Computed example of a mutant assay.
Amino acid sequence: MTVSLPFRQVDVFSHLPLLGNPVAVVHDADGVSSEQMAAFARWTNLSETTFLLAPTTPEADYRLRIFTPTGELPFAGHPTLGSAHAWLEAGGVPRGDDLVQECGAGLVTVRRGERLAFRAPPLVRSGPVDDADLATIVAALGIADDDVVDAAWIDNGPGWTGVLLRSAEAVLACRPGVGFGGLKAGVVGPYPEGTDGHDGCAVEVRAFYDGFEDPVTGSLNAGIAQWLGGRVLPSSYVASQGTVLQRRGRVHVTGGGGEVWVGGDTSTTITGTVGLGD
């Protein structure tokens, strides 16, 4: 049996059309099986596809399941913001001033203001990257060992490692291969201090895993801020991501180190219905 459900595709992290990162959002998905969700995510072939469901706890406004083409994630950033946008646009009314999303990582608060912003969930893995994993990442990025200033696990669900390079220019120069060995590498480098950077951005960020570069990545930027914010980077700043992919992602970070908020502009590009069946 095929069911027809409301659908939105939302562009996240850019105020300009078609220059952010899209997420497919299916509404009213309580009757959709996990297998149907996974099949639709494979079909969209976007970095993430999400499904809005009724919450299972009174603290939450809605529940969210997040799928990549290869599996389910407990949390991801741009799907959180895009799905919150879709839920509000469809008439959702939060219980309080903020939205509360239930997902595999627990409860995530989404703040409304000039733009939507989520409170970064705690890291589930932190600390140094071991030598073997770092060697794999360095080789896959096509850089030298001494290009790396620092590296750490900054995993808040999707599995990110963070790699700090000397400059934004070095980040943009990376020409990665496909040999990441299942690791996910987030690369960050600062624009020169005392300049306006790249359109006012403090850093350039890129997100890699085997055979893929993600255009703009909220979870990664959250982890970077928890790792470097208020120490190597300012407590609040704007990150640029997607430049090499001809996107213009802008990730607005506030907090740094402690309670980090990650925000971005959101806009709906496609509305309609989707038929999901066995």
Rank of each mutant, 00 (worst) to 15 (best):
T268G: 07
A60K: 01
V163W: 11
G31F: 04
T80M: 05
R65H: 02
G264Q: 05
V163C: 11
D145G: 12
G82Q: 06
Y209F: 15
A135P: 10
G113T: 06
D133Y: 06
R95Y: 03
H27C: 01
Q101R: 04
E72W: 03
S235L: 07
A90T: 00
G82P: 05
I224W: 04
L123F: 12
D61T: 00
V148L: 11
T49A: 03
V205C: 15
V203E: 14
V12N: 05
R112K: 11
V93F: 00
V23C: 12
T271Q: 07
F13K: 03
F208K: 13
G211A: 10
D30I: 01
G258Q: 12
C201E: 15
R166G: 15
V93C: 01
P215G: 10
T273A: 06
S236M: 08
T136D: 12
T70K: 01
V274P: 02
D130L: 11
Y62G: 00
V148C: 11
E114D: 14
G211R: 08
V163L: 13
A225I: 02
V171N: 03
V108P: 08
G177M: 10
L88F: 00
V138N: 13
L81M: 03
G181D: 05
V26N: 02
V205E: 04
G96C: 04
N21V: 07
A239Y: 05
R95T: 10
Y209I: 08
H15K: 04
D130Y: 12
V32K: 04
A135T: 15
G275D: 09
F40H: 03
V260G: 12
R175K: 10
A144H: 15
A132H: 14
S4V: 00
R63T: 00
N21S: 10
A117K: 02
D98Y: 01
